[in-house]
Design a protein around this nucleic acid. Structure first.
Lengths: 124, 124
DNA sequence: TCCTTTGTTCTATTTTTAATATAACAGATT
DNA sequence: AATCTGTTATATTAAAAATAGAACAAAGGA
């Protein structure tokens, strides 16, 4: 799982790690049950501090995507159909959809873009 | 156009203003051609600093949503069908869609959520 | 059992960003 | 002429991000 950090980005490093991990899992590069690298080795690979990776892992745990087993490691969760985090996902979608609408996108165009992104992420 | 600032939020104030302005325009509370309040009066209304509002306005301008006329004021743009900002909108959608997929959402469920948000924003 | 690795916790410092506070400027608006 | 506008500048404070180093106690492998 290769992750590219952009030091000049206005997106915090720990968020860059979080997002790229999520995208990597969505693309199937990592699967439920897989272990994540330890915060130390991963930090060394990325050239960042241990605590930065640790913060990203806890962000992933808060989102329900991984489980951190104390003193042991982190493992990617199996999706739980009863826990869709619908409220959070809704709040994350809303500003993007509102922005597209304000810029003049038609509902159908937005649906098409969303579909094309899903297909891109799902194709292996 | 009423805007509610949450001082304790981890979202910066200027981003809260930006997002709520966009949602307000999407809902039709403000329309293309309308003037935004001056940065000073709006800042006074919200109880924040002038520069904070100013930063939000420039964020909105960068997104192509308003035009700032120097020494005069800010006006909401008419949507320009030839300028959909497709690359930026795609990059904004991607992490949210990836997160939903990783949490086990089906493509159809995501499409339904997106549609319901669009309907909610469009209903007046 | 011993040794290494693990996440955790703690303190500390540096850097960057966000937010506020004033002030002054020059064009626009009335 | 007087006011209002966004702009620019400088300064300060507050908060967040990132780094650094150390120590701990449990887990896990040899």
């Amino acid at each position: 799982m290769i992750i590219q950090i952009e030091p000049l980005s206005d997106i915090p490093i720990y968020t860059q790690i979080t997002n790229q991990m999520i995208e990597g899992i969505a693309r199937g590069y990592m699967k439920p049950g897989d272990s994540l690298p330890s915060v130390r080795t991963f930090a060394a690979d990325l050239g960042v501090n241990m605590h930065t990776v640790n913060k990203s892992y806890h962000e992933l745990e808060k989102k329900g995507i991984i489980s951190i087993i104390p003193k042991s490691g982190a493992i990617i969760n199996s999706p739980d159909k009863t826990e869709m985090h619908i409220k959070r996902i809704t709040e994350e979608f809303k500003p993007v959809i509102a922005e597209a609408l304000v810029l003049g996108w038609e509902k159908e165009q937005i649906q098409e873009l969303v579909m094309s992104i899903m297909i891109d992420l799902k194709k292996e």
